[in-house]
Amino acid sequence: MYLADEAWPDLAGELDGTVALVPLGSTEQHGPHLPEGTDHLIAEAFARRAADRTGFLCTPTVNIGVSPHHRQFPGTMWVDAPAFRQYVASFTRNLAYHGVRKVVFVNAHGGNVQHLREVGRRVRDTEDAYAVEWMWDNSIPDLVDDAFEHNGPHGGPKETALIQYLHEELVHDDRLQDAHEGGVESLADLDTVRNGARTFYDAVENSENGVFGDQTDATPEKGEELFDAALDELCQLATWLDDQPFEALLPPERV
């Protein structure tokens, strides 16, 4: 069920006790070959299809995330981390008001991870809701590693393959080689960690065109395989969460 498509009388009695799948991503550069909406398009596809399969609730997508590290590239949008955390915590409590107290943050942007974890802690500590962050590639790490020789953490073949599968019309296939040659194939090639400290803050300090990995290794077929495997993991997570008594998800008593 997709929340935004429903009229309120049809939601009466349908929300209390269900699991909410909240897709979150970003609007930021993903190299010369992928759309700026890559992350939120991926997150929404996972949340929508998981909701269709399980019968749980899918909310509207949060399209802009914590992305200041991509700000040098035209079109990148971002919000400050405290504002993002406050916003997500606020609408999570709003869901709890309607009886939706179990939430999966279906996330597809690495810059959101630590902030979603913090929000999850906050709403759990206040016993408003239980919210857990899920990121698709973290659910199938071995499969992702096996699919590509040079994976890359951003704008690489894994994201390229997923967008080729989900929205092939948005991929500039004629720029895949340029993306590879103008980016950084392996993080091991970088010299921006000194004596255990990360000396960089922005993506452009590591990659001239903002991407990593070998984009030419991506195919829609690989994207479909990865998507289906991660979708299974998400559905299993949501089903597990649905089975848990809410009280068992709250913080344990003090020792």
Rank of each mutant, 00 (worst) to 15 (best):
V103H: 11
G37D: 10
R121M: 10
N112M: 09
R48W: 00
R93M: 09
T92C: 06
E118W: 03
G110V: 01
L21K: 11
Q72Y: 12
H69R: 05
Q72N: 09
R93S: 11
F84W: 09
H33M: 03
A83K: 03
N107Y: 03
H98N: 14
Q29V: 13
R49I: 05
R48P: 00
R101F: 04
R101D: 11
G65Q: 04
Q72C: 05
H30W: 07
W136N: 06
W134L: 13
F73N: 09
I140R: 12
Q29H: 13
A45Q: 06
V104F: 02
D80S: 09
A47W: 04
T126G: 12
N112P: 12
W134F: 15
G75H: 08
F46T: 05
S139C: 05
E44I: 02
T27K: 04
F105T: 07
H69P: 00
S90L: 11
G31T: 09
D137L: 13
Y130T: 01
L95A: 03
T126Y: 00
F105Q: 08
T18L: 07
V103L: 11
V100D: 08
G65P: 02
V88R: 01
I64C: 05
L34S: 05
G111Q: 06
G110C: 04
E36N: 13
N138D: 15
H115P: 08
V104L: 15
Q114E: 14
Y130G: 00
P32A: 12
V104E: 06
G111I: 07
R121E: 13
E28S: 09
V119Q: 02
S67E: 05
H98G: 10
D125V: 00
V119M: 06
Y87H: 08
A89W: 00
A50M: 07
R117W: 00
E118M: 11
D52R: 12
E127L: 11
L116A: 07
H70L: 12
Q114G: 15
F105A: 09
G31H: 08
M77Q: 14
A96S: 13
G120Q: 04
L24W: 00
H109Y: 05
A51W: 02
V119W: 01
N138G: 15
D128K: 02
R85D: 13
A83C: 10
R121P: 00
T54M: 13
D52E: 15
L34N: 05
A51D: 08
T59Q: 01
P74N: 06
